[in-house]
Amino acid sequence: MNVLLDNLSLYGEGLLGTVELTVYASLLALFLGFLTAACRVAPVRSLRAFGTVWVTVLRNTPLTLLFFAVLLGLPRFGLVLPFQMFAVLALGCYTSAFICEAVRSGINTVPVGQGEAARSLGMTFPQTLGDVVLPQAFRTVIPPIGSTLIALAKNSAIAGSFSVVELLGTYRTLSELGYSIIWTFIWIAVGYLIVTLSISALFHVLEKRWGVAR
């Protein structure tokens, strides 16, 4: 118990870091994920190809490798950002590939006739997707997106190895100070639980609100 009480501000900073990483990267992942999902079902061949490449590359790259690529690679091309921004970029892009596939599977659950009806009325592809298909797909993609974002929260621990303040990284300081490693980790685990269970609760509410109709 002392570990937590003695180092409340350190834990607090770490938790805040993890929450920040999770929130920013989630927003980026959701934005890019919906965008690439739209690309993957677009009538334009080059957009579909772009979507496929995006998903294939990001989903099949180990996240640590992606962190190295972003943190060491991008500065070589003159793009220098705070480490936290780099971490959000890496996490967000990586997770967007999984969001994309969840959204695409949701789009595939909407009967083809819905899109055909929209197109037959003269609606363009963005209108068909935005007004007819996605609102119906949204209901089925809530649970898998929730799982993906929980994974993102836990994956954010990798950022700790790249000098970004986050929850797991606090153990280094604490073990140097001589605290029991077991209790250190138990309180870190509790911190992650707070984040992941919050995400679960949020998606539970969303599912209750949107998931049942139809």
């Binding site: 009967p111 006739g113 055909e116 009806a117 929209a118 007819v132 119906q136 139809r214």
Partner: peptide, 14 residues
Amino acid sequence: EVGMVFQSFNLFAH
């Protein structure tokens, strides 16, 4: 300019 009516109605379910 060309309306279409389908066998399976295809009304927007939502």
